[in-house]
Amino acid sequence: MTGLIQNEWMKVFRRPGTYVMIGLLLIMTTVAGAFIKYQESGGTVPDNAEWKRGLQTQNESYKKQLEEMGETVPRDMKEQYQREIALNEYRILHDISPNEEYSVWGFVSDTSQLIEFAGLFTIIIAGGIVASEFSWGTIKLLLIRPLKRVKILGAKYITVILFGLMLLAVLFGYSALLGGLLFGFPEKAVPYLYYYNGTVEEQSMGFHLIAYYGLKSINMLMLATMAFMISAVFRNSSLAIGLSLFLMFMGGQVTRLIAMKYDWAKYSLFANTDLLQYFEGVPMVQGMTLGFSIIMIAVYFLLFQALAFYVFNKRDVSA
């Protein structure tokens, strides 16, 4: 199996396109760093000693708004306010100022937006990894080896996931390095606060960011799995890449629209891939839980894999 993965890895990295992808990711991170640095040099965060008072007034106004609106307040707005209030109270109680200097952590957190691009590149690799063998005609020589087709396809999937993880590692590592150089490390470790199930908890910043990256990349890995499935089933890389990218950009939006009217939107893959909604925001459909989303993700994952492996294994290869 390692030999097969080595083979796939070699085929990915012997093509110049792969380096273009990694290069673009690095360039975008660098540009983001330069831009933020330039803006920041305009002025530093005011050392507002009055921050406790500020948070208190903010909380009061939130509460007042909630009271005034009463029953008419939308569910997600209510949960959003409750969360803000809880976090602010926690800060006041434990003396954790919200006015921290912009540091490496802020930068790494900001560049996590670029995970979308890592996702895009992973989808491109996933969409081509099976379909290309058909269009190159190499599938014929690939499948007449003393190995089960399942193994060959498995090695390809593992390679896709490894490639995705590598892009994430490159993005995280490079952002941390560049952020450290440009913005420095904070003097004292500031904890990250998160609100889950009505309580506020502290977490170390490094751990938080890794978890944050992990949760954000679920969406990209699921879309890559889908692209891989389409690639294996339809032998068509354009279809696989096009459809997956379309869903990557539109899937979330469309699901959100449907969710406003219909409950069944919660069964859409895109209602569930963003697990951050349970820690930092409001679930898309009321009543959705972390457990529900994890099960939905697993169901979609198994469905994609079953389709890919079943069709690939049965297929008559006459490319």
Partner: peptide, 17 residues
């Protein structure tokens, strides 16, 4: 298949390798 070596139609190889 472990006892077979074959070329089916044209010998298509990975051109970038």
């Amino acid at each position: 298949v472990s006892q077979i070596g074959a070329i089916v139609e044209n010998p298509e190889m990975y051109k970038f390798l």
